[in-house]
Write a protein that binds this DNA or RNA. Structure first.
Length: 499
RNA sequence: GGUCCAGUAACUCAGUGGUAGAGUAUCUGCCUUUUAAGCAGAGAGUCGUUGGUUCGAGUCCAACCUGGAUCACCA
């Protein structure tokens, strides 16, 4: 706890004063007959019948005027003005009211009426303290102009404070609160979309004896009773596939992944991933599912199909384009690598002055050219297909070209939004891919994944052909809420300690 | 990790070497229909931290802390 400042001292004195008056500043019991939204709905009826109502909420503003006072009361359904007059509540209750501050939770019993200036308000018969605020909220004022626009003054805008004290951000900045309401709607809609299509939602281990399913450095923790190190999962993939081996044909998980890597505008160490697996489906099925999901979220859930994101207008209302990675490299980097010729690719990368990764084969070089010259050009949604097999250790090869994987990634505004493939179900092939990864790891690649014998054994029992899809929920919410920073869509983003 | 920018009262911000400021918030007084209430008065600050230069530093210099932008890295 910080040292008490002048404001806190004063409020603690008021707390004492309340106790002296026999008022419990933090009572157990509260009551309300209506939410504020409900009394606003039923204005005329409540006013004409002079119905007694009891409201509860947080006092967010106070305008005192001698022997009467006005305030604004807010709950999660709306805001309404309160009117408290000494002659109506009585002397002793008015003494209590005088100790109310903005930030307090209060209860008020009375009837709805219109003030002289026409503002719909509750006229108090009795006010009750529900929870005394002792640390004043930052002062944010707002005014509604003639056109009905809300003008805000001295908004709580410090970015660092908004992240560190998100509760204040939510309380004081309605437009930031709205982002997380939208996020909730989006996540709910994702579940409904998949449930309607016969998928079941499952939960798989976060603490894993081995990590896999992506290339990333893991967090490591320790289990005392078993005396073993465990990893926090970096992906959902390998456990979900085990479930398909187990007979669940359509599964998905919406869950937190953890990657022990850098943090920036699009990376938080923990982030939410959707992974979907559908037996007897394929890449085409996954494209339809992805396209359908984005359309649904945009049109049906948010009611808009054009999103302003990273300085672009992104349209989600049309079928997404498709292009092969090699064609895109040809178009934007200016080299035709459809022959997958290593020497040609290497010479070109060197000529361009690109840094060649250790042990890179032609697939890695194509990826390098793609990342360098293509990604930023992909603005409107586009499915990039035909990934090199070398960089796709869990995907099936294409039947007509063993150098390529049957895989796509969805790019929007220069960023990756989905990753899908026809899942590799050949246990022998999968073992070879794992061993190639292990070899990279032995060479010092910190992000290569270890061989997962338990998973290989599951594959040996047989896994049906299927399509799999991964979508980063945070980035999708960024797009759909038009936010450029991942911290704006994660309630409590990772921050450095201050001490 | 590199570069650039920022950190001053509870909030939003001014302040380019000479006594720490404003608006809001807060407190006191007045006020029985206000609404960014009003009027009068008052209090409130380790100027991110630590050093340095200087007669004198919020201001100049250095290092560090925290955040942001950007680049690198990270599918």
């Amino acid at each position: 706890m910080q040292k008490p400042n002048q404001f806190i001292q004063l409020r603690l004195q008021k707390l004492e004063r309340l106790r002296e008056l026999g008022v419990d500043p933090y009572p157990v019991l509260s009551h309300r007959s209506h939410k504020i939204g409900a009394v606003i709905e039923a204005k005329e009826a409540l006013v004409s019948a002079e119905t007694e109502v009891t409201l509860a909420g947080r006092l967010v503003a106070m305008r005192r005027q001698g022997k009467l006072g006005f305030g604004d009361l807010e709950d999660d359904s709306g805001r309404v003005q309160i009117y408290v007059q000494r002659d109506l509540v009585g002397e002793s209750n008015y003494e209590v009211f005088k100790l109310f501050d903005p930030g307090d939770f209060i209860q008020i019993r009375g009837s709805m009426f219109y003030t002289k200036s026409g503002e719909y308000s509750i006229k108090a018969r009795e006010v009750t303290m529900l929870s005394k605020n002792i640390r004043p909220l930052p002062a944010v004022k707002e005014k509604i102009d003639e056109k009905g626009n809300v003008i805000r003054y001295d908004e709580f805008a410090d970015i660092e404070l908004r992240y560190r004290k998100r509760y204040l951000d939510l309380l004081l900045n309605p437009r930031h609160r709205e982002v997380f309401i939208k996020r909730s709607k989006i996540v709910t809609a994702v579940r409904e979309f998949l449930d309607e299509r016969g998928f079941i939602e499952v939960e798989t281990p976060i603490l894993q004896p081995l990590y896999g399913g992506a290339n990333a450095r893991p967090f490591i923790t320790h289990h005392n009773t078993l005396d073993v190190d465990l990893y926090l999962r970096i992906a959902l993939e390998l456990y979900l596939k085990r479930l398909v081996v187990g007979g669940f044909e359509r599964v998905y998980e919406l869950g937190r992944n953890f990657r022990n890597e850098g943090m920036d505008r699009t990376h938080n160490p923990e982030f939410t991933m959707l992974e979907v697996y559908q037996a007897y489906s394929d890449l085409e099925g996954m494209m339809n599912l992805t396209e359908g999901l984005f359309h649904h979220l945009a049109e049906d859930v948010l009611g808009q199909t054009c999103f302003h994101f990273r300085g672009y207008d992104i349209h989600l209302d049309k079928p997404f384009e498709r292009a092969s990675m090699i064609d895109l490299v040809k178009r934007y980097a200016g080299i035709d690598l459809s022959d997958m010729d290593y020497d040609k690719a290497l010479a070109f990368c060197k000529e361009k002055g690109l840094e060649i990764p250790e042990g890179a084969q032609v697939g890695k070089l194509i990826e390098l050219l793609f990342e360098t010259y293509v990604e930023e050009k992909l603005v409107e949604p586009i499915f990039v297909v035909d990934y090199p097999k070398e960089i796709s250790p869990l995907a099936k090869s294409k039947p007509d070209n063993p150098m390529l994987a049957d895989r796509f990634e969805l790019f929007i505004a220069g960023g990756e939004f989905a990753n899908a493939f026809s899942e590799l179900n050949d246990p022998i092939d999968q073992r070879e891919r794992f061993e190639a990864q292990a070899a990279l790891k032995a060479k010092g690649d910190l992000e290569a994944t270890p061989v997962d014998e338990d998973f290989l054994e599951a594959l040996e029992y047989g896994m049906p052909p299927m399509g799999g899809l991964g979508i980063g929920i945070d980035r999708m919410v960024m797009l759909l809420t038009e936010n450029d920073s991942i911290k704006e869509v994660i309630l409590f983003p990772q921050m450095k300690r201050l001490d």
